[in-house]
């Protein structure tokens, strides 16, 4: 595909998203300067988790809610941690991509069995596969450091005058990667393949009967989402400087799934909104940290039982209400926007 073709075939919504991203970038770049160092860390962790949930949402587009996502991200983290703490350490960039690749490879290996399953079988099998992987982090002490994990993981060398050893500097690294992933995934979501994946999720038998490769269209998002998890995992290892098996346990998994539920997954921004909400809860109730999962759990149950659709639906409804007020002169373009 030539560049010209790509540009002309690019959906309008993507162009808007690109313009929006370009406009928002200076704000996101300026953001850490308005924050104390504590909040800067919160911001980095939020950005890392945003990458995680973006990957998670890709998986949900094929209709399954995986419970191995965080353990899979651990593969990226351990790859980076192990290779960067060798006597002759690897370059960060090499480990970042290798780690993401290994996460994707793991997903590819388990894809055949777990993607044959549905509903509970899918939750249980991905959960069990993820836990077994986490057990491997604990058991293979010689490589992974067992329960203590690996520490003194260095951060990458800075460039263009950005020092990744500062929180703000590292934030820029995460931000850049998050923005690239966001644009790529958004474009992917709008692509033919992205739409086919959702069609397969909506009606597998029908899709199969009209000759769609349903298998491929379920495996691809599962692997792609896992690769992205691997990126997030590798970055988080660098950011924290130390990792251990608990970092990739079910609390974080719960947080991600909760973000996807509370925010909703039918739009791109839903899970991110959910994550923002959960992070806000976490920070507001920082003094009662142990109880935070309880609040998350209560929010999840509330959304599941009484307020289906989650935050994204609330936002969409609000936008639909505001649209005539804000954009009443540009009716035709807004119609395309929704479509």
């Amino acid at each position: 595909m030539t560049i010209l073709q790509f540009i002309t075939s690019t959906p309008k919504r993507f162009v808007y998203a690109l313009i929006g991203t370009i406009i928002a970038t200076p704000l996101l770049v300026a953001l850490p300067h308005a924050l104390t160092s504590y909040w800067q860390s919160v911001l980095v962790i939020f950005a890392l988790n945003t990458i995680m949930v973006m990957g998670y949402r890709v998986i949900t587009t094929m209709g399954g809610w995986s419970f191995s996502h965080v353990a899979t991200a651990g593969l990226g983290a351990y790859t980076t941690a192990i290779l960067m703490t060798l006597e002759t350490p690897w370059s960060f960039w090499a480990t970042l991509f290798l780690g993401a690749g290994i996460s994707g490879l793991f997903a590819l290996i388990i894809a055949y069995p777990v993607l044959r399953t549905r509903h509970y079988y899918f939750f249980l099998s991905t959960f069990a596969a993820g836990e077994a992987l986490r057990q491997a982090y604990i058991q293979f002490k010689g490589i992974t450091g067992g329960s203590f994990g690996i520490s003194f993981i260095p951060r990458p060398e800075g460039f263009w005058g950005i020092d990744f050893n500062t929180t703000t500097g590292f934030y820029y690294l995460v931000l850049a990667i998050a923005l690239i992933i966001w644009l790529l995934l958004y474009r992917f979501d709008l692509s033919r393949v992205g739409r086919t994946i959702k069609a397969v999720a909506a009606n597998e038998e029908l899709s199969e009967s009209i000759g769609i490769n349903t298998w491929g269209h379920r495996t691809l998002p599962f692997v792609l989402g896992s690769v992205i998890a691997g990126f997030a995992g590798a970055l988080s290892a660098n950011f924290n400087g130390a990792i251990n098996p608990l970092d990739f346990g079910s609390i974080l998994m719960f947080k991600l799934v909760a973000a996807a539920i509370v925010g909703g997954v039918s739009t791109f921004f839903g899970p991110i909104l959910g994550l923002l909400y959960l992070t806000a809860l976490e920070e507001i109730f920082r003094a009662f940290a142990e109880w935070v999962p309880l609040l998350w759990g209560a929010s999840v149950i509330a959304v599941l039982m009484i307020w289906s659709g989650g935050l994204e639906m609330a936002v969409l409804k609000l936008l639909a209400l505001l649209r005539p007020i804000l954009f009443n002169r540009a009716k035709n373009s807004s119609a395309k926007n929704i479509g």
Binding site: S250, L294, V300
Partner: peptide, 14 residues
Amino acid sequence: PFSIFMATLGLSYV
């Protein structure tokens, strides 16, 4: 099923 799975996962933390 998914809601039940998540709700009981929440309960287990509680």
